[in-house]
Amino acid sequence: MIRKITYGIFLGIIVLSLILFFAAFPFGKNKMAVGKYYLKNDINQTGAANVVTAVTLDYRGFDTLGEVTVLFAAATGVAILFYVLEEDKKKRERQVYPNFVVRVGSRIIFPFILLFGSYIFIHGHLTPGGGFQGGSIIASGFLLLYLAYPGERVNRSKLSVVEGIAGITFAGLGLWGLFTQGNSFLFNFLPKGQLNMIFSAGILPIIYIAIGFKVASEFAGIVDDMMCEAVCSGGEK
């Protein structure tokens, strides 16, 4: 009974807030406040053709650093929850082979997935895309390989090295801008270049490449943990 009353109160609050929301924000009307400033000054201040990238990495770059930290914390949490000793891992391993088409097809497709993912994050400041999307695409390639070869594992220490280098690149670029060039964290100290060229927008493409590697290695680690949970431990205990 108490539970139903609590649910009712919560539902009432949610419906009321949605009604207030629909009244306050009519659809399709121009209600930009800070967005106008970003759209007007984007080309002069950052040189990135994609304004969303400029907002994510330049105007709100510190926010993105925090987000990458949250991602790292979540990946570490998954690794801790699924922690299995190395010898137990080998002992329990079950060999399940999917059919021939999946095994051969995934080997053919995997390099193209890597290529597409890196295209997405290298062109993050020009086209819709960026480090997070490209990294997720690359991690989906790793997932495909895991589905085709359940017995194989990626080298986790190499993944950690890639992840660490990418994180240090992001934070180090920000600190470099803070201490040597300007007086703000993630100051855009490289030349802006010409709009719509690949070498433009200063440090934004470098940061997005670092984010791409970091997201790819973290998601690949999560996939590795989950697949090991499914294949090598069997879920007993």
């Binding site: 949250v70 991602l71 979540a74 949490g77 999560i222 989950m226």
Partner: peptide
């Protein structure tokens, strides 16, 4: 991205 990683943590 945060939602995807949190979903993985919740599944764990």
């Amino acid at each position: 991205v945060i939602g995807a990683s949190e979903l993985a943590l919740a599944a764990a």
